[in-house]
Design a protein around this nucleic acid. Structure first.
Lengths: 329, 329
DNA sequence: TTGAAAGCGCTAACAA
DNA sequence: TTGTTAGCGCTTTCAA
C-alpha cells in the first residue's frame, strides 16, 4: 500500500542516465547537457520525483531550515511578527521550523536543542532568552543565532532591538505635552528586558521633569492585565495619564478606564501604548502609541541571516509616535 | 572555525563502544546494558552530541515533521489555531514545519510539495485547498493529510469542519428571537467554503421564517471589510440585525455601526458573529457570537494524526451560542 | 559532460 | 547485550 517515495535511482533508470546526472539537473549551476537535463526532468515529472531534503541536508551537513522559537503566538504582536517572518523566510528559499514555547516563562533551551538536531542553518529567538551555553554551542557549530528584543551580554550574536528608550521617551514627552500631572506606568509582572527598558526610560524622563509617577506591574502580558491595572489604579482620581508598555495591555487598560472606571479618554485621562498592533487602530480604541515597524524588524532578521558567524550586529528598530486619539491635544 | 557537529562515531570512540551502542542508547526501548548506557551518555554529554535528525529520518524514510500550511497568520482566528496546534504537536514529539502562504488566494500546492521534500509525516492544511493531484500523492506516499474547514469531494482524507450549519442556524434563531425584521449577512468576497456554508444556512432559516435578508460580500476577511460593510449597509435604516460570518468582520461591523453610522447596539441593531476569537470578549465589544472550541479543533487534528492512512474521518467541531451583549434580549 | 565510487550520520538486521 | 555490516538518498570528488 504505502509505497516509498521515488528516488533519484528510479529517475536515473527511467531516463537512462546515472544518478549523478539526476543530482546535477537538480543542482543549481552544475554542468549537464541540455539533452540529459531534458530527459531527467521528464522522467522525474512522470515518476513524481521530489528531492529528499533529509538526504540532501545530510550531505551538506546543514538543512535550509531556520528554527524559530516563540511563545504566545496568538498575541497580536507575536502573531504579526511570525506572519511576516515566515513569509520572508519562504521567499528566501528557507523553511521555518516552528517551536512554540507554550509559555513565556518556560525554558527555551530544549527547543533550541531540537533545532540543532535538525541541523538548522539559523535560529531566531522571538521570545525568551537562550542560555549562554547554547549561544556558545551555536557559535561552535556554525549555527547563526538571532535574538530579538533581548540584550545578551556578549558580542558575537546578532541582536535586534526595538528602540525602547527612544520610544518610551517619546511617550513621556507626549504625556508631558498633554499636561499630565500624575502618570501611571503599566507593565506585566514578567519583567521582560524590553518592558523593563521601556518602563525605566519613561520613568527617568518623568522623574527628571518632576512629574508624579506610579508604577504598576502584575500578571502576564495580556489584555486582562491591562484591564486589571485600570481597575486597581484608577481609584486614584489624580492619575491623568498612563503609559502601558505594550498595546495589548494599553487596550485592556483603555477598556477598564472607560467602561469600568468611568473615565473619559482623553478628556480625563491620556493613554499611550507601544508596538502599534493592528487592534490599536480599531475605531473603538484609536490608541495613540509608539510604533515599531514590523517591516524593518523582519528585514533585519532576514538580513542577519547573511551576516558572518560570530560577528555581532545590533540593529535598532526605529520607533515613531503614532498620534491617534487617546492623548489630549 | 566552523567545526562540524559531533557524530555518533565520536561518541562511540570516546565511550569505547560501537556506534550501534550509541544509537541504541538514544533509541527508545533498545537493549543496552546500564553500564554501556552510562558511558555513552557521559561521553555524549562531554562532547555535546546531538542526534542528527536528518540522518535519522533518512533511515526511516520519514521525519517526525508535520507540515502546516496556513495564510494570514496574524488574523486572530488563525493565530489562535496555530498557537494551539504547534504546542500540541510539540507535546506529541512532533515538529512543526510552517509554510505560510502569504495570501489566502495563493496556490498552496508548491508549499505542500516542499513539505513532501522533507518527508514530513503529515500535512495539516489550515487554509486553502489542496488540489486533488496532491491528495493522491499524499495517499501514494504514506503522508497523512488533514484538511481543516474544506469539504473535499473524496473519502480518503481526514477533514475537520466547524459545524457551520448548526452555528449559522443558532445565529438565525437568536436574531429571530430578538425580533429582527430585516437582517444583513456580511461575508468576505473570497467565498471560502466555510463562509459560504454559514451564509447559506443562515439565509435558509431566515427565508423560511419570512424574514427580510440582504447579503453583502466584498473584500478579504478582515476588520476593515466589516467596517466597510457597516458603512455601506446601514444607510438602510430598516436593517435591525446582522450576522457576520467571522468575528473579525463582526467587530469591524460593530465599530462602523456605532461610530460611523450612529447606531446603538443592541438597541437599534443586533449583531452576531462566528468563531469567538479572543477580541470578541473585549469590553468594548462583548460580541454575541457562535463559538467553535479551539481545544476540540486542535484535539481533532492531533487525533487525526493517528488515524490510519486513506481512511476518512470527518470531525465536526461543535458550536455553541455565546450570549454577550450585542443582541437584544 | 558524464559515470563510478565514496561518504554524509544514522539505524536495523544479523552474528557473535 | 554487543559489534559488524549494509543500506537510507543524496552530493561530490575523481577519472574517463
Amino acid at each position: 500500500m504505502v509505497k516509498a517515495f521515488v528516488t533519484s535511482v528510479d529517475v536515473a533508470q527511467r531516463a537512462g542516465v546515472s544518478r549523478s546526472a539526476v543530482s546535477r539537473t537538480f543542482t543549481e549551476g552544475a554542468s549537464v547537457s541540455p539533452e540529459v537535463r531534458r530527459k531527467v526532468l521528464q522522467a522525474a515529472q512522470e515518476l513524481g520525483y521530489r528531492v529528499n531534503r533529509l538526504a540532501q541536508g545530510l550531505n551538506n551537513s546543514s538543512s535550509n531550515l531556520v528554527g524559530v522559537v516563540g511563545a504566545n503566538l496568538s498575541l497580536p504582536f507575536m502573531a504579526k511578527q511570525l506572519d511576516m517572518l515566515s513569509i520572508g523566510l519562504l521567499r528566501r528559499g528557507l523553511q521555518c521550523l516552528l517551536l512554540n514555547a507554550a509559555d513565556a516563562r518556560s525554558d527555551i533551551a530544549p527547543l533550541i536543542e531540537l533545532i540543532f538536531e535538525f541541523r538548522a542553518r539559523a535560529i531566531v529567538v522571538l521570545s525568551g532568552e537562550p542560555p549562554m551555553s547554547i549561544v556558545d554551542e551555536c557559535l561552535a557549530n556554525g549555527v547563526k543565532l538571532i535574538v530579538i528584543n533581548r540584550q545578551l551580554a556578549r558580542s558575537d550574536t546578532d541582536i535586534i532591538l526595538s528602540d525602547d528608550i527612544a520610544g518610551a521617551t517619546l511617550a513621556a514627552e507626549r504625556l508631558k505635552a498633554a499636561g499630565c500631572r500624575k502618570v501611571a506606568v503599566v507593565t506585566s509582572g514578567s519583567g521582560t528586558p524590553t518592558q523593563l527598558r521601556r518602563c525605566k526610560a519613561f520613568s527617568d524622563v518623568m522623574t527628571a521633569a518632576g512629574t508624579d509617577i506610579v508604577v504598576w506591574h502584575d500578571g502576564p502580558t495580556t489584555y486582562e492585565t491591562g484591564l486589571k491595572a485600570a481597575r486597581e489604579l484608577l481609584s486614584d482620581r489624580q492619575i491623568d495619564g498612563a503609559f502601558c508598555v505594550t498595546d495589548i495591555m494599553a487596550i485592556g487598560f483603555l477598556d477598564g478606564a472607560r467602561n469600568d472606571m468611568g473615565r473619559r479618554v482623553p478628556e480625563d485621562l491620556s493613554v499611550i501604548g507601544f508596538d502599534d498592533i493592528p487592534q490599536a487602530s480599531w475605531r473603538s480604541y484609536e490608541l495613540t502609541t509608539i510604533s515599531q515597524s514590523f517591516e524593518v524588524l523582519t528585514e533585519a532578521v532576514l538580513a542577519a541571516l547573511d551576516h558572518e558567524l560570530g560577528q555581532s550586529v545590533i540593529t535598532n528598530v526605529p520607533v515613531a509616535l503614532i498620534e491617534r486619539s487617546t492623548v489630549r491635544r
